[in-house]
Structures are given as C-alpha cells and as structure tokens.
Lab assay of single mutants.
Amino acid sequence: MQNSHSGVNQLGGVFVNGRPLPDSTRQKIVELAHSGARPCDISRILQVSNGCVSKILGRYYETGSIRPRAIGGSKPRVATPEVVSKIAQYKRECPSIFAWEIRDRLLSEGVCTNDNIPSVSSINRVLRNLASEKQQMGADGMYDKLRMLNGQTGSWGTRPGWYPGTSVPGQPTQDGCQQQEGGGENTNSISSNGEDSDEAQMRLQLKRKLQRNRTSFTQEQIEALEKEFERTHYPDVFARERLAAKIDLPEARIQVWFSNRRAKWRREEKLRNQRRQASNTPSHIPISSSFSTSVYQPIPQPTTPVSSFTSGSMLGRTDTALTNTYSALPPMPSFTMANNLPMQPPVPSQTSSYSCMLPTSPSVNGRSYDTYTPPHMQTHMNSQPMGTSGTTSTGLISPGVSVPVQVPGSEPDMSQYWPRLQ
C-alpha cells in the first residue's frame, strides 16, 4: 500500500499530492522566468500547473527564495509595531506611495530583511487598517496617535501638521516623493554593498519588468496595427511575429492590442446598429396606417339613396333571421326581375335548405315592403301603392349592394327569390 497518492495534472505532468515540487523543477521555473518566458509558457514547457508556477515565482520575487514554506503551523507575524509605524510614516510623507514602493524602502533602510519582509498584500492590509482606524477615531485622537508614531512633539492640530517642515499644504506631496526618490538612490547604494547585491538587483529588475506600465504606442505603430486590423481581426502567430519585427513591439503586446481592438470594434458596431435601427424607425405612426385595407374592405359607393341603408337594423327591421341572411350572402350585381318571367313554384328541397333563413311567422307573405323604405322617402312611396304591378321595390342582398326588384302586385311571395340566388 502506497503512503502517498501520485497523479497526472491537466498538462500531463506527474505530481505527488500534498508534497511540494522538487527543487530542480523550481530552479528551472526561475531560470525560464529570467530568460523572459511568460508564466503560461513555463507552465506548458515544464508541465506544471499555472497556479503552481505563479505561486513559486511570486514567492521568489518577494523573498528571493525558491524553497517551499513549512507545511503546517502558523507563519510568524511580520507586521510588527515597528514595521507598522514605518509604513504609516512613509504614507504620511508621500500619500500616493504604492505598497511595493513601501516594501522596497523597508528593505533599503534595513527595517526588514528578506526573511521577515511583509508581502505587498500585508502592507496593503496595514494601510487599510490605518485608514479604518482613522475613520473610527476622532480628529484629536487621530492626531495624537500619528504624533506618537512619528515621534515628534510638534502641533498636529492642523492639517499642514501632517507634513512636517512644510508650510504650503500643496507642497508636502512633492517633497515626500522627492525624499522617497532619494531613498531609492540609497536603495541602490545599500544593496550594492550587501553580499547578495547582484541577486537582489536582478530580482528587482525582473520584478519591475513584470510590473509594467501601460504600453505607449507611437503613431507609426498605431498606423501599422490599424492597417493589419483592417486586413483581418484575428491575425495568426506568423502575422503577429512579422508585425512585431516590423514595428519593434513584443508579440504578446500585439496580441493584447488586437484583443482590445476587437472589443472596441464590437462596441462601435453595436452603436452603429442602434443608430441604423433608430433612423429606419419613423418618429410617429401615421393615422391612416393604423387601418389596414386588408382588414377593412372598402364599401362601394351607393348608386341610389335607398342603398345607403345596408342592414335591417338601420331600417328599423327587427327580424334577425333576414338580417343574418342578407349579411351572409355574397355580393351580387344589380339585376331586375321582369313581370314576364315565369313564376316557378319553389322546389321543396330548395325551400327546406333555406328554411332556417325565413321567419317562422306566416304573415311574411302579407307584409308590405314599406318597412324598408327610409324616412325621407315615405311620402313618395305612399303616393304609389304597392298593389300595382309596376311598383318597384329595392331588396338588399349584402352591405353596400342594392338590387332593384320588380315585385308582382298580386302576391309578394318571398319564396320566388331563392331559386334565382343559387
């Protein structure tokens, strides 16, 4: 039975679970980093996980050691009161100082060594604690504590007292930064006198190289990059290397530039699409467009005044059976039934097929058609009795279509119309 579990990581490298990497692998990681390889490249070359490479390099940059820390136990506290007071002093002298600059000053002034120097995250935590204590304490208590930490007896009751030896409130920041720059020169002199001055200088240079600022491109470089971006948004590694040799930039910087440029292009394309949609959409909808001609068919113009009344309900007709019959029939052209047409008796099958359309009241044959006459024609229609054979009435077949029909004066039988409509 094995005491430890061995495995293979996602890159194909072998590791022992819970145990640190061998010293030979750690040394190779540092050597590759000094030669300029990126952590992701080191991870692929040595088949070590990216997190492990970053952790080893980060500890090497901070402490200069590649040895693993002790497994188990607690780390001794490195942010001692003396170190905290120095950090507060540096922050007062130059409020814009960075944590890694404070760390360098602690090393250069001999406050800490490589073994007990606090990390950048520890210094940031100390600065946050100082800021929170400043908010919790009152103004007087804060000034007393700062005077105690600074070891001075001057008056701290006013704002300019934060910067000793100065009279203009805006000047101390520059003086403090100048003092810090002077301390940086002392850093070089002190570290050069040490035993491991060369190694420390190499480590600091490598650290500065990794902690780079934003790349500033010249106009020629920007023009070359934009020209390549117009050709393709995704250049391959050969195109990037050719462009890197042409404009004297690292291939990694060119790759990052193209990634950022593609993101910018997507944002601009989104804005262009929004403007295009806004320009195509009308600002207001016309009133006429809300009524579609496919839904509402136009009603033909009436030929006679009587045809303006298109349904039985508008003429005072309360018989719903006839109203439904007229509205359900398709529109037909106007025609006239003459008196000489043969009077065919209704076929029983045809009569039964339209039995649902006729009223059940037996008085329908005896009703006159003056009910369908509009009010303004009552006088004219009353002067001509319906009993004469020459009287013409208008029957409504569908809305908007008038059918003048000659009705025999002897017997106005409704059943004569249905064979004609089939």
Rank of each mutant, 00 (worst) to 15 (best):
P39F: 13
P22Y: 04
G110H: 14
K134P: 07
R59M: 05
E82A: 09
F15C: 03
Q89V: 12
A99S: 06
L130N: 11
S6C: 08
E133K: 08
I87E: 03
I87C: 15
N9Q: 02
G7I: 13
P76W: 03
T113G: 10
N114W: 14
E101K: 12
R38P: 05
R59V: 12
D140Y: 10
Y143F: 12
L32I: 06
I29C: 04
S24L: 14
P118N: 01
S35L: 06
N116W: 11
N3V: 09
K28Y: 06
S54W: 02
A88L: 11
S54V: 15
V53K: 03
N3E: 10
K145F: 08
G58V: 12
R19F: 03
S54D: 01
G7N: 08
Q2R: 09
I117W: 06
F15N: 03
N114S: 11
N116F: 13
N17Q: 00
S85F: 14
G138Y: 10
F15S: 03
E82W: 08
T113Y: 07
N124P: 03
G73S: 00
V53Q: 01
S85N: 08
R38N: 04
S122P: 01
G141I: 12
A139V: 12
G73N: 00
S74N: 00
R67A: 05
L11K: 04
E93L: 13
L149K: 15
G36W: 04
H5S: 09
L127M: 06
K134L: 12
E62P: 00
S85A: 11
G36F: 04
S119R: 04
E31N: 13
T25L: 09
R26K: 02
Q47Y: 15
A37H: 00
G12P: 01
R59P: 01
R103F: 04
R69H: 15
L11Y: 06
E31Y: 15
I42K: 01
L21S: 04
G73V: 00
D140Q: 09
Q136Y: 13
S122N: 00
Q2A: 13
P95T: 11
G51A: 04
L107M: 09
L127K: 04
M137H: 09
I97E: 06
Q89F: 11
V111W: 14
E62N: 13
R92M: 13
V16E: 11
V16Q: 06
N114A: 11
S24H: 08
W100Q: 07
L32D: 02
L146V: 12
Q47C: 05
A70D: 09
V78K: 05
E62L: 15
G7D: 15
P118D: 00
A79W: 01
A70M: 15
V16G: 06
G110A: 14
Q10F: 06
P22V: 05
D115K: 05
F98T: 09
Q89P: 03
I56N: 00
T113E: 09
S43N: 03
I102G: 01
R128K: 09
G51N: 02
K145E: 08
G72L: 00
C52R: 02
S121V: 00
D115L: 08
H5R: 06
L130G: 09
D41K: 14
I102H: 05
V30E: 03
